[in-house]
Design a protein around this nucleic acid. Sequence first.
DNA 1: TATGAATGAGGGTTCATTCAT
DNA 2: GATGAATGAACCCTCATTCAT
Lengths: 184, 184, 184, 184
Amino acid sequence: MVERIVAAGREVLVEDGYDAFSTNRVAAAAGISPGSLYQYFPDKSAILDLVVDRYTEETAERVAAAMSERIGGIGIEVVRDIVDALLTALEADRALLRVVAEELPLARSGPRRAALERRVGELAATYLLARPEHSRRPVPSVSTWVTVLAIENLAVRWVLDQPAITRDQILDEIVALVAGYLLS
Amino acid sequence: MVERIVAAGREVLVEDGYDAFSTNRVAAAAGISPGSLYQYFPDKSAILDLVVDRYTEETAERVAAAMSERIGGIGIEVVRDIVDALLTALEADRALLRVVAEELPLARSGPRRAALERRVGELAATYLLARPEHSRRPVPSVSTWVTVLAIENLAVRWVLDQPAITRDQILDEIVALVAGYLLS
Amino acid sequence: MVERIVAAGREVLVEDGYDAFSTNRVAAAAGISPGSLYQYFPDKSAILDLVVDRYTEETAERVAAAMSERIGGIGIEVVRDIVDALLTALEADRALLRVVAEELPLARSGPRRAALERRVGELAATYLLARPEHSRRPVPSVSTWVTVLAIENLAVRWVLDQPAITRDQILDEIVALVAGYLLS
Amino acid sequence: MVERIVAAGREVLVEDGYDAFSTNRVAAAAGISPGSLYQYFPDKSAILDLVVDRYTEETAERVAAAMSERIGGIGIEVVRDIVDALLTALEADRALLRVVAEELPLARSGPRRAALERRVGELAATYLLARPEHSRRPVPSVSTWVTVLAIENLAVRWVLDQPAITRDQILDEIVALVAGYLLS
DNA sequence: TATGAATGAGGGTTCATTCAT
DNA sequence: GATGAATGAACCCTCATTCAT
């Protein structure tokens, strides 16, 4: 039932946008009555939080999976594969990404995004520490922070704004950005 | 009068946050009646738009000024100076930056931000075109897009999240990021 | 306008009872929209408070007037006249008295009633102090408290329950009660 | 089971007040499901009614017991003992008395209170009829009504408001009130 | 032009009651 | 009998917008 509500919430968000995310609308989409929401959630924002949580976790999961799979690999191709996975994950539900990234008050999606960044960042930091030859930057925590934020933003904007840049191009550019930063 | 309203709107935004940005509140802050707002703006969101516009323009102005000033300069120090100017501009009104970047539905500030990016991007592209030796990336428009977006996001997050990274450090890192990207 | 709302509130209270005292109902009775209530009252309970205040003050006023008028008089007839005035005041709007005394959570009407008691009590105490021969009770503040509470309750119950006791009878009884108490 | 529910209702009333007296809360306190309430009570107010009934009966029982015990006694001390018993009964559960007398719409506790008054009144009337020398008032039913109501209200207010009057004082005063009324 | 009282749809939430299990 | 999830009408209140003055 919680799942049904979360699904309905996601649907409302995708189909009608954040402004339409009212308890009445979500309940209607879930095919239940407004009062029933409150048997599973303390208030409206808890529903929204869980919808965003689920989405963020989904995305984090895919990226983290790609990372742990590829992380044994050699050279710069690792980065390309990971970013490729990230793009794929973001492309999976562009409509929801748009709402989460652009309509939600960032204060709501911010913490989830930060969690994602932390999770991915830790993996990356571990990797960099294990292979010091892969980074010439002096402070690993800092270069991780920089790398993760830069990649994340570029990926999100590329998916949402769909600039005149091909997928291969953006992958090349991001790889070049990261490689140039860490290795030169 | 429009200016008075915009100033009031900005004040409300900074002092009380986005949720308090109601027409009544803005009118009160401007010392006029709610009805009078509608003589100068078609609706509430037009006021908000103009507030954000003004802020974005201010910031763009400062960065563009720094760019045209420094753009004749030599080498990588140019980048450092420009990023420095950007940080300074963002630090000028951290409270408003927080509201604009974190509380506003990004959809509202998005277009203004895009305008800023375009403006700065054009300057950068012009520069890179004029001095091809400064970039080894194949498509200037793409590398400009990448550079501008990466820098912008890192700068905003550094100012807002205040991570344990000194100002000099973040400048070094951004310079390294850009230099590594464009030159290697 | 405040008066119009108070009148409407009183009407709803009298006509439909306390449970029907909803903001929508009061607004409808006042011929205005629900939102307009909030231009004159901070919340629903403020409306109710004022309705009860007005009623209590009205009643207190009448009784106090009778008291100051008669208080120069001689002997026990003074008490009779005052209680008569009290009965008259309570009979003036029996329907509202019923709601105020029986439907309202006493916590709401309690403080107003207490104020009325205090006001009347002070007058009575002053009188008793000025004419010590009128009371043989040792502690004036206590005998005042006892007298006021006893009279008030008897008067209210007589008006509301309409027991098989004539008006003259109840006046006689209350006079006997008070006289016997204070003078014997 | 009915008893369990009544006990739970009383608990909720005492612990959390009238506003918290919801079917869900009472059911939870009784360790049963909300739906089960309706197997024993037609609706919520029936539960409340029975809780109040029980409490009123308890109180009536104690007072009536004291009355039949003392009623053979001589003189005014009888009154004192009975009022003493009443105060003791009211003090037994001051928290519940407060809720019943101050938070409940009086309309709900009114009929129960009236029953108590009738019961006590009948005892008193019987007594007065049997010993005509104890009252000089002309209509026993009327003087009983007056006496019972006056005593009841004074006792309740004394227990709840805790004015600066000692227990002995209030007993003295009530005795004086009654004695003066009936005998002078 | 400026006002600001009035609007009223819609918001989130509660809770007595029902009924399929 | 017992359950407890589901109901949905009704609650109080907000606020962008309007319009008579």
